[in-house]
């Protein structure tokens, strides 16, 4: 047990980033993610890295743009309203095929909202909050260990596909402390001959005015990458689905509530399990469809008014009924509410 440390989610993510070799962090204070910049401001100088508290979210993501264009591993983090501000930069990063990691410790919205955990940013994360035809890989951890593991992996994914990787956590996860075993770096090496500052007179740019179809061609280049990611990067967890009549579908903190509800429902003799997407983009459509075969119904549970449920419906394409239970605005569903809903199907 000695290798386990009780760590706040935010701090576990920050330390995992450092283990991944991230040496450049640029951010701006916003609750409930402040422990990430605070931790980085202390730790990065210890490992020869750079921390800058930027003048704005917009500046922070553009500092990441600059650092990433040199091939260095860099990141930023924020919470929902701040992530909105970063969308401009994320679109530019995506266009220029620059790798980086962005952590969203999301909170209630819209607007300034509140500071409790929320899942109202699913659309923003998976549908591209910025402009243009682009994708970001979206990873949704559900405990502190996974937050650390996925943050580490995010840097490899970002470098491998030259994409922005977004970690969609939430305020509960960021503030929660759990025992964490810090992950080991993968040791993978990536070719970065596209970077500036390596004597190749490289250009990192996103404006393509000519030829007329230049941007179209570039979009197809991006699509090829996205297609590859869709086949190669799909993560999900199945829990007690084998004999289940009902399938709960949830990610992040909601999935934890579902797990508790499943235990209690099974104690009552109702066979239920869950499917937990870990990559929200690419969404594991085929895997969910397979998992849903032979089930009577899907109940999607979210801390929102219903966002991922649209992907769930796309996955099963009408083959079985899809119900939704959610609560927006920084509240968390109770196991009792989920139990009651599932019992109503009997």
């Amino acid at each position: 047990m000695s290798d386990k440390i009780l760590m706040k989610g935010n701090e576990a993510a920050a330390e995992a980033a450092i283990i991944a070799g991230c040496r450049y962090y640029f951010g701006y204070p916003i609750t409930p993610q402040n422990e990430i910049p605070e931790y980085m401001s202390k730790r990065l100088p210890e490992v020869g890295g750079t921390f800058i508290q930027a003048e704005s979210e917009t500046a922070a993501i553009n500092m990441v743009f600059g650092a990433s264009s040199t091939g260095a591993r860099s990141m930023t983090s924020s919470s929902s309203p701040g992530i909105s501000l970063k969308q401009e930069g994320i679109s530019y990063l995506a266009a220029a095929q620059l790798p980086c990691v962005v952590i969203n410790v999301s909170r209630g919205g819209p607007g300034l909202g509140n500071i409790a955990g929320s899942q109202g940013d699913y659309f923003q994360s998976t549908r591209g909050g910025g402009h243009g035809d682009y994708r970001t890989i979206v990873l949704a951890p559900y405990n502190c260990q996974e937050l650390a593991d996925l943050t580490l992996e995010a840097f490899d994914l970002a470098d491998e596909y030259r994409m922005v990787v977004l970690i969609l956590a939430d305020g509960f996860l960021g503030q929660m402390s759990e025992p964490v075993v810090l992950p080991e770096p993968s040791g993978k090496k990536f070719n970065k001959d596209w970077a500036v500052g390596i004597g190749r007179k490289n250009k990192v740019a996103s404006l393509i005015l000519s030829p007329e179809d230049g941007l179209t061609k570039h979009n197809y280049v991006l699509k090829e990458v996205y297609d590859k990611v869709e086949t190669e990067v799909r993560k999900y967890e199945e829990y007690m689905l084998d004999d289940a009549d009902y399938l709960l579908c949830a990610y992040g903190s909601s999935a934890r509530i579902c797990k508790q509800a499943i235990t209690e429902l099974r104690n009552k003799g109702i066979k239920v399990g869950y499917f937990r997407p870990i990559t929200l983009w690419p969404f594991p459509y085929d895997e969910l469809l397979n998992a849903s075969k032979g089930k009577k119904k899907i109940l999607t549970v979210e801390m929102s008014l219903g966002q991922m449920v649209e992907d769930v419906k796309l996955a099963v394409n009408g083959s079985i009924p899809v119900d939704f239970y959610g609560i927006p605005g920084g509240m968390i569903p109770t196991p009792e509410a989920i139990i009651e809903r599932v019992e109503s199907y009997e």
Partner: peptide, 23 residues
């Protein structure tokens, strides 16, 4: 709460700790 969680973790138990935060 955090100290209690650490103590229990030291004994090999599963633990979690989540504070109310902010305002």
């Amino acid at each position: 709460g955090k100290l209690l969680a650490i103590a229990a973790m030291k004994e090999g138990k599963e633990v979690s700790h989540i504070p109310s935060y902010g305002a």
